[in-house]
Design a protein around this nucleic acid. Structure first.
Lengths: 209, 209
DNA sequence: GGGAGAATGTTAAAATTATAACAAGCCTTT
DNA sequence: AAAGGCTTGTTATAATTTTAACATTCTCCC
């Protein structure tokens, strides 16, 4: 019901891709419907939470029956904006960047890297799949020309903040940051940190707790 | 005060590495003390939250003065168990795995990859830095012999669950999972998901919201 | 076509997490 | 050595998030 605008919590948004992947898996097994109960068991989540998450966006279920897998997957895709291809630029084509580049090609997903950039002269022109590493000077124009709104940042930490500034200036709206530092970005730009070292350090705690 | 046992929230544990990195940065600039207020500004966090997080583990601050940077960094390291080296095995030496392997060498951190494994015969024996790819058959013995408790899983999704099972059976206590699927593991094994596609999909939402 | 069973969407309660407020205490300066 | 100004640790309050409960309604089967 779109009567009153409500802010949707981040935690909910972050669960949607989990639901979506699960539904795609069910589709592979040609399962046609699924209940929140079943989803809860398979995903280790509370069924009430799943129903509540989904009901924020609409009445997708059928009472007494559950959710139609294909239909729900379609709905979630639409909520996330994955119906049309989402172009991405990747900055920093080191080991990790190159790996992410290849990873992206194999994954079947709407999010697609369409341009890769690096500040180091020796990298320029290198071929990664169908993509050629471009110099940083071309970043702004490329982003604006292809209306790119999402970026992956995989540079060394020393370069990360200035690359971030350049991305923001070019009109990027969201950044997935692999550099191990806290990026400073304006509030309208969303930064998600995917820092391996931090993840490992947090896990370390549970080894002796 | 260790009088009453209290469960420490995950969110708090996940902020500790953030604090730690920040403190290390301050150390580079030879800053000796820092207040929760200053930390709050720099890390975009509420000062009260920072103080509360830290006070769970002890009284590290000095009233009227703040926290001694070096001392606090030391305390947090100890809380996380980073004082001694934490051995890690990495399973799946594809593009991503190899990148993580190199990444780990450059990062200065207590968490250290000491063994790398792959199920594909062509990979066995390949050299990555000082490490040689071992066959899966050696995993259990290696893990037990070196008392490894933490693993990075970077295999293709199809192999991920069986590798997970093998890791659990070998005595692994925590897994950082890069494979795009939900691992089933017993409750005493902590799994942290670092799934690039899911992260990107969640970010996609904010491009049109 | 009607009744039993099942599963949703929603409302209410509980639990968790974040923020604010403040008394206590330490450092610095006079 | 005493006072003032900071900043902590902690207690209290607010906000958010999770879980439970239930009335509603849909499907399936006889």
């Amino acid at each position: 019901m779109p009567g009153k605008m409500q802010r949707i919590p981040d935690v909910v948004i972050r669960r949607l891709p989990v639901y979506l992947r699960y539904l795609h898996q069910l589709q592979e097994y040609e399962v046609e419907t699924v209940s929140s109960q079943q989803m809860g068991v398979d995903l280790n989540l509370n069924p009430a939470q799943i129903r509540k998450d989904l009901s924020i966006f609409g009445d997708f279920g059928i009472k007494g029956m559950g959710y139609k897998v294909a239909e729900l997957a379609e709905q979630i895709s639409e909520i996330l904006g994955l119906n049309k291809e989402i172009p991405i630029v990747l900055v920093g084509v080191g080991n990790l960047g190159a790996a992410l580049c290849r990873y992206n090609r194999y994954q079947e997903s709407a999010t697609k890297i369409i341009g890769i950039f690096d500040g180091h002269p020796s990298k320029i022109g290198q071929q990664h799949g169908s993509l050629e590493v471009r110099p940083m000077e071309e970043l702004t124009e490329f982003v604006q020309q292809h209306k790119v709104k999402l970026a992956i940042l995989a540079t060394p930490p020393a370069a990360a903040q200035s690359v971030c500034d350049a991305l923001v200036a070019a009109g990027i709206k969201a950044i997935l940051n692999f550099a191990p530092l806290l990026l400073q970005a304006p509030p309208h730009v969303r930064v998600s940190n995917a820092d391996v070292t931090s993840e490992l350090q947090a896990l370390a705690y549970y080894l002796h707790g």
